[in-house]
Design a binder for these strands. Sequence first.
DNA 1: AAATTCTTTCAATTTTTATTGAAAGTTTAA
DNA 2: TTAAACTTTCAATAAAAATTGAAAGAATTT
Lengths: 173, 173
Amino acid sequence: MQLDEAKSKFIEGWGTLGSAWGVSRTMAQVHALLLVSAGALSTEDIMEQLQISRGNANMNVRALMDWGLVRKELRPGERREFFSAEKDIHRVATLILQERHKRELAPIMRVLGEIRQVEPSPAATPEETKAFTQMIGNIQSFADFADKAANTLIKADENWFVSTFMKLMRSRF
Amino acid sequence: MQLDEAKSKFIEGWGTLGSAWGVSRTMAQVHALLLVSAGALSTEDIMEQLQISRGNANMNVRALMDWGLVRKELRPGERREFFSAEKDIHRVATLILQERHKRELAPIMRVLGEIRQVEPSPAATPEETKAFTQMIGNIQSFADFADKAANTLIKADENWFVSTFMKLMRSRF
DNA sequence: AAATTCTTTCAATTTTTATTGAAAGTTTAA
DNA sequence: TTAAACTTTCAATAAAAATTGAAAGAATTT
């Protein structure tokens, strides 16, 4: 397989993965394109390579910058902007985790906290109310656990990367 | 807050969470409804409570059964089917993890494996090819790590549940 | 200050995804 | 075997999400 074909397949696959996880296909594809491009790309480059409009390219690049996954790169003597992706996969994962926590986990946790305050009322038996409170409590506990676990792991993975890097360095110098 | 209102808020919140993570809003809502319902519900119950059509209710209940999150419950002397959700949150998480692994992680891993076989070619510099291979390799490593970590954690959480349960038992008997 | 080059916005449009509802299918009962 | 009660399917429709492209906005140069 040639490099170009491999890149295309990656872009396609990353786009499919994204849309299965609630990220728009094009946003994931722009991300993928920047991940596998050697240098930074201009809006024109992105438009051409993904066959999308200027507006679309611009919107998705900005969204990726909001996530912290893409950076603007200015070149001296060049008027237009270039974009490059964070290439350190560990940082990519950390950024995605942070953003999804903020956007999706935090809101549902707030709701869970609120509805757990349900009051006993004549319209429901105490058993029903108790079962509900217990269910919500379990979800809260699990979410807490998963959240802490994810953060711990990201740190563990960081250490793993660092130690691998250190070993490599030691063996070379 | 009354129980009914709390349930509605949960259903709404769960639906929103689902759609942010690539699960259709209605499927997540049906799941939420069954999670907070004391007994099993019929298709009619689901239609009425979520204000959706018969076809829609049926499709989503079947999808939830495919995920292993909902079970059919037959009552002696009753012709129609009732549905109830798996209530153990730990099992819920395990099932979702398994299913998403199978549906979304496995395919992208296959693609990554394929495109890593990229051959050196005159159309690309060796540096470009190397950078690409390295990027893909890093993604593979990270995905492997995350996958194993998630499975380890699910087991760790199981132990945590078990040990909490054991403590509770010990303190009572 | 006018022209040039590039970026951003957003109403209109297209595409994708979800939903409906009626017909066909299935199972049990009469 | 027919009817009744329920489930499933799927073409048509509706709703939601993404995309376009042209116009407006900025920044820089002449």
